[in-house]
Each structure stands twice: as structure tokens, then as C-alpha cells.
Design a protein around this nucleic acid. Structure first.
Lengths: 204, 204
DNA sequence: CAAGTTATTCAACACGGCATGAATTCTGTG
DNA sequence: CACAGAATTCATGCCGTGTTGAATAACTTG
């Protein structure tokens, strides 16, 4: 007890032996902590600690906190074009369904953190808000809606975005139950008709 | 140029003459800055500066930054019970319509800032997320839905909350156009049917 | 008008943030 | 195997944060 095990031995100085990938470790740790704390709340020290590495490595590998955020959060973990194409395949009447399922699936797995990190960083990081808009509106919704919606494309796109963002907020950021734990099928059944109407239905 | 006009003269020390309401000035400034920056981003010094007052007054009047936040942002600017009663008057088939109009109206006027401040503070302030949930779900939606929804009250409540939160995010926080500038009637026409379905419609 | 209370400012503190540069250890190439 | 370069840690610098206590000025009460 008094001296503790050798678990947190003061790390040796200088280059580490073996092919340790510090850069990747930092990226992983950064994603976790930016998700939990947002840009302002996350400290370089905390990220480095979780990666079991000195804080100075953030500067060495990414040029600073800013660069780490850009690389870990702002960079998309998948190609938007793929999502668009994948969603567009099939009957237009079931577009809402495919969109909900796609987003719930993607966000439930890897990319949900990116959404949370962006929202939690909106206050302190200028680009966060822009990144969210570019991602949802520009890269995804605009392309889908331009092909199938009858009119008022921009308004329809922001309507769809509003329901998607709301779903993300409630499900991943604020975690209101029981929606936060509802399975994909339940979410699709509930939300798909909304999106379908926003895209192809009458909105006035 | 060199010495500047007497505009930012070093304020005199000691109590100010006249019935100046420093407390109110701080509250007003705090609302502005918490809305713009969130809890973490807002600094006591910046708030005091906007109120044209020394930073120490925050401690004097509110016991600290925390107390100021509680008083300026967490305290509701209206009585939830009133909103519930006002919304419930009328045909159940137009509930969605009244809800959208009520929220857009309230938020477009005074309380939109509170929503933005809460969202921007979710990362750094524990209570922010709870406040949002208590406000939307507990105080508002639960009471409405318990009286008119056929089943699955909690799930329906969170669904409604998701669309309202999404609308707030897109309209007030992230400001996606053209939704951000759409007038109340347009929003009602677009969003009311969604809420109506979440409340009384079939969601599975 | 004297004394006490309240409001206000100023200066300073203690803390924690990010970034930097020197010192140290490993890897790779000839 | 020597040596250049890259990776890593440590110590430190500098800045901005919220909070505190003393000093000063105005108001309030007798």
C-alpha cells in the first residue's frame, strides 16, 4: 500500500524500444477524451496520460492541441460519398427508412463519438459547428435531396438535419431514456416516416 | 490616439453613487456571454467587463461563477405549468401545431438564449444536461403526453423532445439556413405533423 | 453629522492550461 | 560498430483562470 506496486513506475527517458505507435495511441485517447469532455474540457495532459505518453508528444506529432483535434475528430472516419450512394439504392418511398437505419448503425458503432465530440465542442471550437453542417448538410443531405425532393431543397435538407441532430443529441449526448437505448428497428419505425415526409412529402 | 479619450478611465474605487443595480447588470451580461461561450468558455472577467464592473462583484453577489450560472441560465424565465396548460387547451388533433408554435415563439423571443447556453455548456457543466432533460421531458412533455398519448408515454416524450431539440440546435445553436430564419408559420407547417404523429400517431 | 453597513475596486494568490527546449535513449544506415 | 536522426521525457516558462482580503467610497440610520 504505502509505496504501491511498480505499476506507475516513472517511465524511462528517451526513445522507447520496439515499434510502439505513439501517434495512434494519442489519436485513440484523444477521440475518447474529446468525446467525453469536448475541445475546451479535454486537456492535453489528460489525453497524453490515457495514451500513457508524455504531453509533449502531442506537439511533436500534431503540432499542438488544435492539430490533434483536427486529426482525431474533424477528419471523417468514412467516405460520405459511399453513404450517399448506399442510401440512394432502392425505392424512393423507403428513403427515410434507409437514412435512419444507416445513421443509427454508423453512429451506434464507431462514429457516434464524433457527433458527441462535435456537439460538446461547439462552444469552444469554431470549426466544430461548421464541421457538423458540412458533414450533415453539404456532404450528405444536399446530395440525397437534390436528386429526389420535389422542391425547396435547402429547407428540406435542414429539416432532415434537424431530426437527425435531435436524434443524435437525445441518443448520444444527453442520453434521454428510453430513446437512448431503443434498438435500430424501433428507431426506424418511429423516425423514418418523419424523414420521408421531410424529403418527399408536403411540408406546407 | 496615444493616450486615448477618457472613455476607459480607471474607475474610481469604493461604492458607486446613485442607485446602480450591479446585480442586474451582471445577470444580463452573464446571459449574453454564457449564450455565446458556454459555461467553460465564459470567463468571469469577460462577464464583469461587459457589465462594466469589477470581476470580484460576481463573488460578492452570487458567491462565484457557479452561482451566477445557476441564477442567470438554470433559472427558468417562465412557469412550465403555464406552458403546459396553454398548450393543452383545444383540439388534441392540433396539439403538435400548438407545441411547435409555442416553442418557436418562446425561444425566438427571450428564452432561446437559455437553450443555446445549456447546449453550449453541456460539455463542461454537469447540471446543464440534466436541466435540459428536466425542462423538456419532466416539466413539459411528460405532463402533456400523459394526458393524451395512447401508450408508450416515455418513448413518445423522448421522440418529441428529439425533434424539438433538433429544431433548437439547427435554429439557434448551429444556425443552419434556411431553417434558422424561417418564420413561425413555416416551421409549424413543416414540423407540427411530426410531433402530432409522435404524440398520438402510430410509431411502430 | 457620526458611526456602521454595504458596495466597489485593486492587487495578489494559487492553480492549471499549453507550448518549448534541452537532455536522453533508441533506430537505421553505411 | 559508429554516427546521424528520430522519438521520448523532463523541467520550465508564460499566460489566463476563479477567488480572496484589504482599502476605499457611498449610503443608511440614529
Amino acid at each position: 500500500m504505502t509505496k504501491g506496486a511498480k505499476q506507475d513506475a516513472p517511465r524511462r527517458r528517451g526513445r522507447r524500444p520496439g515499434g510502439t505507435d505513439t501517434r495512434a495511441a494519442l489519436l485513440a485517447a484523444a477521440r475518447e477524451i474529446f468525446v467525453e469532455q469536448g475541445y475546451d474540457g479535454a486537456t492535453v495532459r489528460a489525453i497524453a496520460a490515457r495514451a500513457q505518453v508524455d504531453a509533449a508528444m502531442v506537439n511533436h506529432w500534431f503540432g499542438g492541441k488544435e492539430g490533434l483535434f483536427a486529426e482525431a475528430v474533424l477528419k471523417l472516419p468514412f467516405n460520405p460519398q459511399d453513404v450517399v450512394e448506399r442510401v440512394l439504392v432502392g425505392d424512393v418511398d423507403q428513403l427515410g427508412e434507409r437514412i435512419v437505419r444507416t445513421f443509427v448503425t454508423i453512429w451506434d458503432n464507431s462514429a457516434g463519438g464524433m457527433f458527441t465530440a462535435l456537439v460538446r465542442s461547439i462552444a469552444g471550437h469554431e470549426q466544430a459547428s461548421n464541421a457538423l453542417r458540412d458533414f450533415l448538410i453539404k456532404h450528405i443531405m444536399a446530395r440525397i435531396i437534390a436528386k429526389v425532393a420535389p422542391d425547396r431543397h435547402e429547407f428540406r435538407a435542414t429539416l432532415v438535419a434537424s431530426q437527425l441532430v435531435g436524434m443524435g443529441m437525445v441518443r448520444y449526448v444527453a442520453r434521454f431514456e428510453p430513446l437512448a437505448s431503443a434498438d435500430a428497428d424501433t428507431m426506424v419505425a418511429a423516425v423514418a416516416p418523419t424523414l420521408q415526409r421531410y424529403i418527399t412529402g408536403t411540408i406546407s
